[in-house]
């Protein structure tokens, strides 16, 4: 089992109107590993991400989750294989309570979507509350989701993504739009859950402080090509990555600059 990676991507490609958004990207991710995907705006990160969970169909290449080919599957089918996803701009159900948001995900996981009789407010209530407790939202269960602050929405999204007991989490800019302290807390929580349940996590991010703090390994994408891959330290030292993406390090924390003490 250990020889088989959780996620393996081979030669993934996509072009829009003659422009190559993603060109022959290959990488693998194993259980319990936290992998960051970084690169300049327009480098193809989002396209790449959307191909992994089926939102976009690739022109070429293969995606395998635990050995099973998922290329061309719809997002809902990929989800059924145990892949959870959070979005850059949170996507939740604002007209429901916080707990109902999770209950919907649970009823879908139980394949009860066409049940017309059961009363949802009582459905799998304990499991829903357990998930909310896990992300620290237990006290918000009965609140209207539409009233939540942005950071709390991100945590709710994480609880929903965990409802199908995923083996892989795809997180697109998980901390975008959050205050610096909230960013650190959310990623710490994610990393802790991932390690405990040995979930693999792939995330994109622009906040280098978050990336260098939490990623086990980093992939760097530029103009659709994978230009570097390695540990945070290796990536930080990579001259090409500095020239294209990281810049002089003026705009992120000094302790994450090249040459700084670890």
């Amino acid at each position: 089992m250990s020889s088989q990676p959780l996620l393996s991507v081979e030669g993934l490609s996509k072009s829009y109107g003659g422009v190559h958004a993603v060109r022959g990207v290959s990488f693998a991710l194993s259980s319990g590993e936290i992998l960051a995907l970084i690169g300049p705006n327009g480098a193809g990160k989002s396209t790449c991400f959307n191909m992994l969970n089926g939102q976009t169909a690739p022109d070429g290449g293969r995606v395998r989750v635990l050995g099973q080919d998922t290329t061309g599957l719809k997002p809902r089918e990929v989800w059924r294989l145990g892949v959870g996803r959070t979005f850059q701009i949170t996507a939740t159900f604002p007209t429901m309570t916080v707990r109902e948001n999770v209950q919907v995900a649970l009823s879908s996981h139980d394949r009860k979507l066409f049940n017309l009789i059961a009363a949802m407010p009582r459905y799998a209530r304990q499991e829903a509350e357990r998930l909310l407790d896990l992300v620290g939202m237990g006290g918000f269960a009965m609140r209207a989701c539409g009233e939540l602050a942005y950071g709390d929405l991100k945590r709710l999204e994480l609880a929903m993504a965990l409802a199908n007991r995923p083996k892989l989490l795809l997180m697109d800019e998980p901390t975008a739009g959050m205050a610096p302290r909230e960013r650190v807390e959310l990623m710490r929580l994610t990393a802790q859950i991932a390690r405990e349940k040995s979930i693999g996590v792939l995330f994109t991010e622009h906040d280098m402080d978050v990336v260098f703090e939490h990623a086990d390994r980093i992939l760097v994408l530029n103009r659709g090509n994978l230009i570097a891959e390695g540990s945070p330290e290796e990536v930080r030292r990579n001259g090409e990555v500095r020239a294209i993406y990281l810049g002089e390090g003026l705009v992120y924390d000094a302790r994450h600059r090249e040459g700084a003490a670890p």
Binding site: I38, G39, P40, N41, E173, A176, G177, H206, M208, A243, I244, Y245, L246, G247, E248, G249, L250, V251, Y252
Partner: peptide, 14 residues
């Protein structure tokens, strides 16, 4: 102006 931009682009913005 810097939200969601890569560090390098942020430097150009400066």
């Amino acid at each position: 102006p810097s939200e969601g931009l890569s560090p390098k682009i942020v430097e150009q913005m400066v």
